[in-house]
Simulated scan of single mutants.
Amino acid sequence: MTVAFFALGGTISMAGADGGVVTRLGAADLVAAVPGLAGLGVPLDVRDVDAVPSGNLTFDQVLDVVDRARDAVAGGAAGVVVSQGTDTLEETAFLADLVWDRPEPLVFTGAMRNPTLAGPDGPANLLAAVAVAADRAARDLGTLVVFADEIHAARRVRKTHSTSTATFASPDTGPLGHVVERTPRLLASVPRHPALARPAPGALAGVRVALHTVTLDDDGSGLAGLADTQQGLVVAGFGVGHVPAALAPVLGALAARIPVVLTSRTGAGAVLSATYSAVGSESDLARRGLLNGGFLHPYQARVLLRTLLATGADRDRIAAAFAARG
């Protein structure tokens, strides 16, 4: 029973340098630094991929990793672990989950404390991630994020703190389980959706999706001309999905030209659909053509919308996808 390990870079792979730390450690270095890994009895197929900060990752690079992961499990791997920086991990793991069509676990992890600091968390996170990837109980759960001995569904996890080692949380559901004494203990599950089609190579290049966070006294002037350069828009509204009254007609005009998805900027909870009816409320915006993002946070909604557009989805298919996944 082999687990494939793909190392992308990020804090978990940082080493000392004058003026700061940079990505220097390869996959073999990371594995060698994990106490107790040999005791799991899980052979690793170790591979270096793109050693870059996660802020530099692209959709295409992430999809390439998913392709490699799919090849690995087709070749007999029991699961796959991917290490990367945490800056975009909630987005990359969600993108992977959208197109991951295998029962084997695809597990993302990383670190908040680099190896030059006291108490780096990378080795512990990697140990827990390998344990989860190798465990049959983790099959059919889609893509997972394992951090601080917690097991999260990629479709629900968020990065919630800039420096804490407990940064990853699932505000709406909590973790699916925990790793206890190197053993995964699954306590819950979330419904798994059928995988989306993987965008064809090059298809993403012409698809741009903007994200607009609504703020106090926002009149939408910054959105002028957006439909001429963007193929979609995600709006992070107030609370349950509200915007200032002056912004509502601006968003309605955009929704007549491109898909516009309404989400909440709060970090947890769902966008409502039929509670408030004032201008700029969720009901008003729905009447103007905005699509309801449900429980998806703005960054997830942008990933989903761009993926759908890159596969040629029309408005009805986009609306159905958000209704099912939000």
Score class of each variant (00 low, 15 high):
residue 41 G to C: 08
residue 292 N to F: 06
residue 274 A to L: 09
residue 287 R to E: 15
residue 290 L to C: 11
residue 47 R to H: 14
residue 262 L to D: 12
residue 88 T to G: 11
residue 42 V to E: 12
residue 78 A to I: 10
residue 290 L to Q: 08
residue 296 L to I: 07
residue 205 A to Y: 02
residue 108 F to V: 12
residue 131 A to G: 00
residue 34 V to P: 08
residue 63 L to C: 07
residue 120 P to M: 02
residue 246 A to W: 00
residue 229 T to W: 02
residue 66 V to A: 12
residue 231 Q to H: 14
residue 100 W to P: 01
residue 33 A to L: 11
residue 269 G to C: 04
residue 1 M to Y: 04
residue 3 V to P: 11
residue 13 S to F: 04
residue 90 E to L: 11
residue 70 R to F: 00
residue 142 G to D: 00
residue 160 T to Q: 14
residue 49 V to N: 14
residue 161 H to Q: 06
residue 250 V to H: 03
residue 189 S to P: 02
residue 246 A to Y: 00
residue 119 G to N: 07
residue 212 H to E: 02
residue 43 P to W: 11
residue 207 V to M: 07
residue 25 L to H: 15
residue 252 G to T: 07
residue 128 A to Y: 07
residue 101 D to H: 06
residue 300 Q to G: 04
residue 153 A to R: 02
residue 67 D to Y: 03
residue 175 P to E: 11
residue 326 G to P: 07
residue 9 G to L: 10
residue 46 V to D: 10
residue 211 L to H: 07
residue 299 Y to H: 13
residue 158 R to A: 10
residue 12 I to D: 13
residue 118 A to Y: 03
residue 194 P to L: 04
residue 189 S to T: 15
residue 194 P to E: 09
residue 305 L to W: 01
residue 92 T to V: 13
residue 1 M to F: 04
residue 106 L to K: 07
residue 60 D to M: 08
residue 52 V to M: 15
residue 297 H to K: 09
residue 105 P to A: 13
residue 317 R to Q: 14
residue 248 A to L: 01
residue 167 T to R: 06
residue 151 I to C: 03
residue 90 E to Q: 14
residue 35 P to G: 13
residue 105 P to M: 12
residue 153 A to T: 04
residue 170 S to P: 14
residue 111 A to E: 08
residue 288 R to D: 06
residue 191 P to V: 10
residue 89 L to F: 05
residue 1 M to N: 04
residue 259 P to H: 12
residue 14 M to D: 05
residue 136 R to F: 09
residue 149 D to K: 10
residue 147 F to E: 03
residue 1 M to H: 13
residue 50 D to I: 15
residue 299 Y to G: 06
residue 5 F to C: 04
residue 29 D to W: 14
residue 273 S to H: 13
residue 128 A to I: 08
residue 225 G to E: 02
residue 25 L to I: 09
residue 217 D to K: 09
residue 256 A to H: 05
residue 228 D to I: 00
residue 158 R to N: 09
residue 24 R to N: 02
residue 324 A to F: 01
residue 202 G to M: 11
residue 209 V to A: 01
residue 55 G to N: 14
residue 23 T to S: 15
residue 262 L to K: 12
residue 252 G to Q: 05
residue 215 T to Q: 13
residue 214 V to Q: 08
residue 11 T to K: 07
residue 271 V to E: 08
residue 46 V to I: 15
residue 316 D to C: 01
residue 92 T to L: 03
residue 52 V to N: 14
residue 301 A to R: 03
residue 95 L to Y: 03
residue 191 P to L: 08
